[in-house]
């Protein structure tokens, strides 16, 4: 009798423990998580409409790489890859000349992504920009 009780308790206990071990990931999975989606994305909310005054820019996260959103002096929105094609430094907007400038070796691009001067071998990839309600959405051109 005693042996049988032990076996039953052992069986029931290990079953409960196993179920608990399985429920943990399930519960964690279902509960909303705080981290945002990563990885390769085809579009992203780069900024809020009106966030950028004319002739300013901001660097936003596009997947795992930086992108640059420029609001030109004329109020036109332009978005490009922020990764310099020379040595993958992050480019920045130079308001004075309305160009993109790489601080590492003074590479310079126009807002069409074309190389104006310096060592970059290729133009920057340009993205499509769309204003949708309060959001400025940048997406990869297909």
């Amino acid at each position: 009798m005693k042996r049988r009780d032990f076996v039953d308790i052992f069986l029931g206990g290990s079953l409960l423990a196993t179920i608990a071990a399985f429920l943990y990931p399930v519960v964690r999975y279902v509960l909303p998580s705080r981290s945002a989606g990563g990885g390769v994305q085809n579009s992203v909310i780069a900024a809020k409409a009106g966030e950028l005054p004319p002739n300013t820019a901001k660097v936003f996260k596009f997947g795992s790489a930086p992108g640059v959103l420029v609001n030109t002096a004329e109020g036109k929105l332009v978005a490009l890859s922020g990764t310099c094609t020379h040595l993958t430094c992050t480019v920045r907007f130079d308001a004075e000349t309305e160009t993109l400038f790489c601080p590492c070796h003074n590479g310079r691009f126009d807002l069409g992504g074309n190389v104006l001067s310096g060592p970059p071998p290729r133009p920057l990839e340009t993205y499509a920009v769309e204003v949708s309600g309060p959001d400025i959405i940048v997406s990869r051109k297909s």
Binding site: G38, S64, T90, P103, C104
Partner: peptide
């Protein structure tokens, strides 16, 4: 998945390349 961290590492790369220059 570490694509988020790779994003940050690129910033450091910018600093490394600048420092060398």
């Amino acid at each position: 998945e570490v694509s988020d961290v790779e994003f940050k590492l690129q910033d450091v790369n910018t600093l490394l390349v600048s420092a060398k220059n």
